[in-house]
């Protein structure tokens, strides 16, 4: 199953982005081969609805798991409806390390939003 890691840049070496809706890139990784595709997040600078648009982009990419830092309420709702597992708590590591950490069971799937709406803005 393909994994999606929210990222600040377009490669496996890029630092992952702890924000879901407003991350800069989605890195879609095939974990067995570590082959990947970088998808730019059009919703990164959206005025509103970034979480919803990002969830749609991830669903369209075919990923079954999202690895990120935090997820807001609307993104959570949309991702869950699409049957995508949401794994949070990743921060301060590269995309590659985030994948490895996930595969070794370091991050856990969540059963709800981990931050409030608009948390990916500013700060």
């Amino acid at each position: 199953m393909k994994l999606c890691v929210t990222s600040t840049g377009p490669s496996l070496e890029s630092m992952m982005d702890p924000r879901f809706g407003r991350c800069i890139y989605f890195i879609i990784v095939e974990p067995d081969s570590m082959q990947f595709e970088a998808v730019e997040n059009d919703a990164s600078g959206a005025a509103g609805g970034a979480g919803v648009q990002s969830a749609k982009a991830v669903a369209d990419s075919g990923a079954g798991v999202v690895i990120t830092g935090n997820v807001g309420p609307k993104a959570y709702q949309a991702l869950s409806a699409a049957g995508i597992a949401i794994v949070t708590g990743a921060e301060g590591v590269s995309v590659k390390e985030a994948v490895q950490n996930y595969l070794s069971g370091k991050y856990r799937p969540v059963a709800g939003a981990t931050v409030q709406a608009h948390s990916g803005l500013g700060g």
Binding site: A43, G48, G49, A50, V52, A59, A78, A81, A82, G83
Partner: peptide, 18 residues
């Protein structure tokens, strides 16, 4: 224009507050 309605995997979702 506001991501208030979205279709993910053929399923439509409405976010009224958007």
């Amino acid at each position: 224009q506001y991501s208030a309605i979205v279709v993910i995997q053929k399923k439509v979702m409405v976010f009224h507050e958007l």
